[in-house]
Amino acid sequence: MAHPKRRQSKSRRNKRRAHIKIQEPLLVQCPLTHQKHLYHHAYWYEGKLYYRGKMVLQKDNPSIM
């Protein structure tokens, strides 16, 4: 296993870690239902499953959701 020859300074370590951070999820608004959802994900709304602005699936009993 490789080992560094010298210790890295705190500033160099922090510069490397500056790009590693939590990003907020990318949300978009559906043009059909105007609901916000995760990009490239299907979502349920009023017992119906929507994906890319189209209804994909409808539940028989919407009270289950």
Score class of each variant (00 low, 15 high):
M55I: 15
N14F: 04
R52C: 09
S9I: 02
R7W: 01
L49R: 15
W44A: 07
H3N: 11
S63A: 14
Y51S: 13
H41Y: 10
L26A: 08
L49C: 15
W44P: 02
Q23I: 03
G53W: 09
H34Q: 14
R52V: 03
S9C: 11
A18P: 00
H34I: 01
G47D: 03
Y45D: 09
D60P: 02
G47F: 03
Q23S: 05
V56I: 15
Y43F: 15
L26P: 00
S11Y: 06
L27R: 01
R13M: 09
P62D: 08
S11I: 13
P31F: 01
K21A: 08
Y43L: 06
K54T: 13
A42L: 02
K59W: 03
M1Y: 07
Q29S: 05
M1W: 05
P25G: 06
Y45M: 02
H41Q: 15
E46L: 14
S63N: 12
Q8G: 03
C30E: 03
R12C: 04
H19T: 12
L38Y: 10
M65V: 07
A42V: 01
N14L: 15
L49E: 13
A42H: 11
Y51G: 07
Q23G: 01
R52G: 02
H19W: 04
K36Q: 13
L32M: 11
G47S: 05
Q35S: 02
M55P: 04
D60E: 13
Y51T: 03
Q58T: 12
R17S: 11
H37M: 04
V56H: 08
L27Y: 02
R12P: 00
K59N: 05
Q8N: 06
M55H: 01
L38E: 04
T33F: 06
Y45T: 01
Y43T: 05
L57D: 07
R16A: 11
P4H: 15
E24W: 02
K54E: 14
L38V: 06
R52T: 04
T33Q: 10
H19C: 03
D60M: 08
Y43S: 09
